[in-house]
Amino acid sequence: MSAVSGRVGVVLVSHSRQVAESVAHMALGLAGGADVPVAPAGGTGDGGLGTSSELITEAARRVDRGAGVAVLVDLGSAVLTVRTLLAEEDELPPGARLVDAPFVEGAVAAVVTASTGADLDAVAAAAAEAYGYRKA
């Protein structure tokens, strides 16, 4: 690809719509209002607790700028649904990747790193690195 390619997109998948939206808000805020495409995909389609594959695929398409999409998940069905969508070739944009990272800290690290124009490998590595920071 020539010219400047787009930023890596970030999708935040949580069982709760509020958690996904709040973590997106927090990550963008801590990234200094950076120009990173971030989309929450929280809860079920009707606003309940759970996982919606449709919300995830919509979010991934929305943030796809051709530079890859880092997908962060909280637990359980969020993990399994994204793994399942990735196993199907056509469900998520090419370059979408499930990132093994803690949800909140990983989201902040991913968005901040993506804001520097880093590629998907670097974004995923930064998010995963958040596991290594001990708090006590």
């Binding site: 759970g50 996982t51 919606s52 594959s53 069905s77 399994l80 649904t81 399942t84 196993a87």
Partner: peptide
């Protein structure tokens, strides 16, 4: 996979 909303969706779907 697209309608269950819990872990059983991707598991049975798979």
């Amino acid at each position: 996979i697209s309608t269950v909303g819990g872990a059983s969706g991707p598991l049975y779907g798979t």
